[in-house]
Design a binder for these strands. Structure first.
Lengths: 240, 240
DNA sequence: CGCCAGGTTGATTTCGCTCAAGCAATGTGG
DNA sequence: CCACATTGCTTGAGCGAAATCAACCTGGCG
């Protein structure tokens, strides 16, 4: 059997299936080749740090496989999970564009493969192709939208509603439909982290989960959730 | 006496004292002249809308005099005040850069003069001077930082702490030092709006204010606040 | 004058935090 | 293999903070 170079993710950018869905999609052939040869791909163990708050920004990261969490630690040591990123997402573009130090920490949520692209390479690419800068601008803009939406949510919704929102978001990414119409979710993060995402204590989240089970909307067991009637969750949001 | 054109704010951009402090500072002579002749300045009455959520973006605004509030209204009709902008600040650059509809509403907080710059002019300027786009990128980046910081605040601080933070911010802009070392603030917004900014009901804010007065930190009367010991406010934040 | 928006105040209930104990799964060193 | 600590999660009791509902006050303003 002839061995052929497959479009194995992470092998190189040219055949990377994620590239069409992220900022790199505006790059032309030669530019992609430059990117492909400059990028360094490595594996991360679950929980391993990709970068940490305060350190200088040397470049940006591009997730090939797995997932990462961005978190910030405030003065009192509370750690707040800001967002989860998935294959195709780029990380750390903010520090890069502004020449600042890292504002957050990022860590692998499970075994992951993540490429690193040096600052200089990105700068070169952006000079050759101005559309790339615009892509990152668009990206930051979307992040800002997300943040503003969360601000409004925090101001108006109850903890339960916020958690239901979070659960629906996680369902989008991690849910598999079961034959009976329910959804099975494999949670990528701990309950503490979920609690921090909705701005509540973990004990409170535990009780919220208890109430959701009482109401028969979902069953929780470790990191697997079974949402019996996904529709009723959406209902709940609509009228809250 | 010879009448001479003074550097009256709003008369034209070339002599506008704010220009050195906002995104336009990277423009060169000819570019500023283009900006100056293209911009349209008009007065707004207190409470008048500059633009409203959902309408298409035709250009950006630049505050000459006065102040504006950006607010978002969610599904249930709750209105949340996102941020206050001051002379020199630009408004509506997000919709412009992304070609989207307005996500928020903006309104004048008091009698204001605000310039309008058409989409086409901004685009022309950004093509002639790429540094301008970078300025807006920097600006969005700062906004994102603010939003993230607020998110962390919301997750960890009490309503009282959040209000003290807000009060200190307002003091920076609207405070005048009194001879006895206290600060007198002329609040630009209603208590309802302040309540929405910290994610609390207006009754709750009323009570918080009551407690602050009991504690002797400040005296509130209508829209004027007298902060007796500004230092003790900062203390309160540090240890909360 | 009545009306109204913005603000205060009170009574009551709900919600969420704190502190504390207990439990299950996992790892570790002897 | 067991004793032991550790980590993540759950549960309960008590308490304080904040939401809700409602009354009332106040200063414009037609």
């Amino acid at each position: 059997m002839v061995e052929r170079r497959q479009a194995m993710p992470g092998a190189n950018c040219i055949e990377c299936p994620m590239r069409q869905h992220n900022e790199w999609r505006v790059l032309a052939g030669a530019e992609v080749r430059l990117l492909a040869q400059a990028r360094k791909c490595r594996r991360y163990r679950a929980g391993e740090a990709v970068f940490t708050a305060g350190e200088p920004s040397h470049g940006i990261y591009c997730i090939v496989d797995g997932a990462t969490a961005m978190r910030q630690i405030d003065a009192e040591g509370n750690t707040v999970l800001i967002q989860i990123s998935y294959p195709g997402d780029t990380l750390g573009y903010r520090g890069l564009l502004m020449g600042e130090r890292r504002r957050f920490s990022a860590e692998a949520l499970g075994p992951s493969r993540i490429c690193f692209i040096d600052q200089q390479v990105v700068k070169t690419l952006m000079e050759r192709n101005p559309a790339l800068a615009l892509q990152f601008l668009r990206r930051i803009n979307m992040d800002l939208d997300d943040a503003h939406n969360k601000l409004v949510q925090n101001a108006t919704l109850s903890n339960r509603s916020k958690f239901v929102h979070l659960l629906l978001n996680l369902m989008d990414r991690h849910g598999r439909p079961a034959p009976d119409g329910s959804q099975v979710i494999n949670l990528p993060i701990s309950r503490r982290d979920m609690a921090s995402m909705i701005g509540a204590r973990h004990e409170t989240l535990s009780r919220i989960i208890g109430r959701l089970e009482e109401d028969g909307v979902a069953r929780f067991s470790g990191r697997t959730v079974c949402v019996n009637r996904p529709h009723s969750l959406m209902e709940e949001i609509r009228l809250s």
